[in-house]
Nucleic acid binder design. Structure first.
Lengths: 225, 225
DNA sequence: TAGATTGTTAATCGATTAACAATC
DNA sequence: TAGATTGTTAATCGATTAACAATC
């Protein structure tokens, strides 16, 4: 039995990139892949790739590299992609619709089990075959098919109340796209993506003439207890 | 003249959050704000707020805090939000439309100077008053009103060629939403937001029962030279 | 002066990377 | 054996945070 490995956050954030590249490599018939190849494709340092993969265990073979399919399987398992993650999206504007339709979202275990909005012209329509319901029905629908993940894609003004209702209805994690810092109980996992922060970081670097450290990472937000 | 301060990446990523909170505070009539207040609102440590702000200079007043309006002005200037950043978006699907319409995008200096798609049912329509043109016209339109920032909101399959054309047409920075690692010349700033990576990070933490470090940061991607 | 709050120091923690012994 | 490539070490760098002197 392997020791309980604690995987660094920075590594966790890169595993999905390796996962996608490996999927493409396997589909194109590659049997093995070296850390050098994977590094070039991912745009990172080969040392970093080896270090990242070493946290999952030692399944490389010195001299020839990693078995692509096996490595992919290990990463999938580590990321929990072999499990089912029912997901509800609140706010079916352009962004919510983009999320509902995104191949990377609906594929794998990220099954959409609920779409909610308040706009009468949207409620009752279908996105990718899933009926958009009124937010008033959120608790009832979620009780029938409880989502593990709640996605907040509403305007900022209602993001906190929507988050509160999703949490009360039992989601274990929230993915927030509203430009607002949300409060959730500490047992609920919260991640936030703020598209305008990305632009402002770009603005900073352009106005300072900094070439910027090779283009890393996204927005930072945190949960208040 | 202040010494040339190098502002840490982590600080740059938090400045937009402070900026937004200060804007709300100023609008609600607050004259001063303490690091403790700002920290609570941002969901971070007060030490971190003071350290972050200290990179911009020392404009706090011991005993009473920071002048909210002045601090906001300093952050705006530091982020380059007082400048004009014309922006072209390629790919006017749901995501591109969400970006074009996002208040945080179109406001401030992020002026949309070009929208491009290939779908005949989209080309010729208007989003927020801006005409969507065919990608064939990209070079011509961009020569007339050159964008500083190019946004890639296309399917993954064409993201690299679109990026190449935007770079060739002279953008100084790219913001990529396609789930693909892009290559750009090193003088071009590249940032990538991968929505499915966020979900996979959530999946990792849910399946490991890790409460996750208070919910920080976004996806990591890098440019290959 | 007394209370409040900044700005900075220093300790600590986490992430990156070059180098190289191990080994296929 | 010779060449290739991993897994790990150790040095370095960057970010976080508690603590507190400075000072309004």
């Amino acid at each position: 039995m392997p020791p309980a490995r604690r995987i660094p956050e920075a590594t966790v954030a890169r595993l999905p990139i390796y996962q996608r590249l490996l999927l493409e490599l396997v589909r194109s018939g590659a049997a093995t892949v070296s850390s050098e190849q994977l590094a070039t494709l991912a745009g990172v340092n080969a040392s970093k790739v080896r270090k990242d993969l070493s946290f999952l265990g030692s399944f490389g073979t010195r001299g020839s590299g990693y078995d692509a399919e096996f490595l992919l399987g290990q990463i999938d398992r580590e990321l929990g992609l072999d499990q089912d993650w029912p997901m509800a999206i609140v706010g079916i504007g352009n962004l919510g619709r983009a999320l509902a339709a995104a191949p990377g979202f609906s594929s794998r275990g990220f099954r959409i089990c609920g779409l909610f909005d308040v706009d009468p012209s949207v409620v009752g329509t279908r996105v990718r075959g899933v009926l958009v319901r009124h937010v008033d029905e959120l608790e009832r629908v979620m009780a029938e098919d409880p989502p593990a993940i709640g996605v907040v894609a509403t305007p900022a003004g209602v993001a906190q109340v929507v988050a509160d209702r999703l949490v009360a209805a039992g989601v274990k994690a929230l993915l927030n796209f509203a430009p607002r810092v949300l409060s959730v109980p500490e047992e609920v996992l919260l991640r936030s993506v703020d598209l305008s922060i990305e632009l402002q970081v770009i603005s900073f670097h352009l106005s300072h003439g900094t070439t910027a450290p090779a283009a890393v990472d996204g927005a930072a937000m945190a949960a208040v207890d």
